[in-house]
């Protein structure tokens, strides 16, 4: 039986204190091998201190056509940014 190794999405923590970041994907028969392959493919030059692997099939993505309904509503809520408010200089740093 020939079946292609499943695809995994690879996330690497570049340095202590940073989030894991998506760096790409690769094929591996199981999670353990995916970690080993990720080490070889994505961290040959000390790019990481930790690796996450996730089966690509487990990821649910928002659809590009939902971009408007999902993200536009926050455009009108400028008051969420501190610069919306004018604070008098006399008050000092805030």
């Amino acid at each position: 039986m020939s079946s292609e190794w499943p695809l995994w999405e690879i996330f690497i923590r570049g340095q202590h204190g940073l989030n894991h970041r998506h760096v790409g994907s690769l094929h591996a028969p199981d999670a353990e091998m995916a970690v080993k392959h990720a080490r070889d493919v994505y961290t040959r030059r000390n790019e990481g201190v930790s690796i996450w692997v996730v089966p690509s099939s487990a990821i649910t993505a928002s659809s590009p056509s939902d971009k408007g309904p999902l993200f536009d509503p926050s455009n009108s809520k400028v008051y969420r940014h501190p610069t919306f408010f004018d604070i008098p200089e006399e008050v000092g740093k805030m």
């Binding site: 039986m1 020939s2 079946s3 190794w5 028969p29 199981d30 091998m33």
Partner: peptide, 9 residues
């Protein structure tokens, strides 16, 4: 080898 690892998984 590819098939063997898949069977093992």
């Amino acid at each position: 080898f590819r098939e063997g690892l898949m069977a093992h998984a």
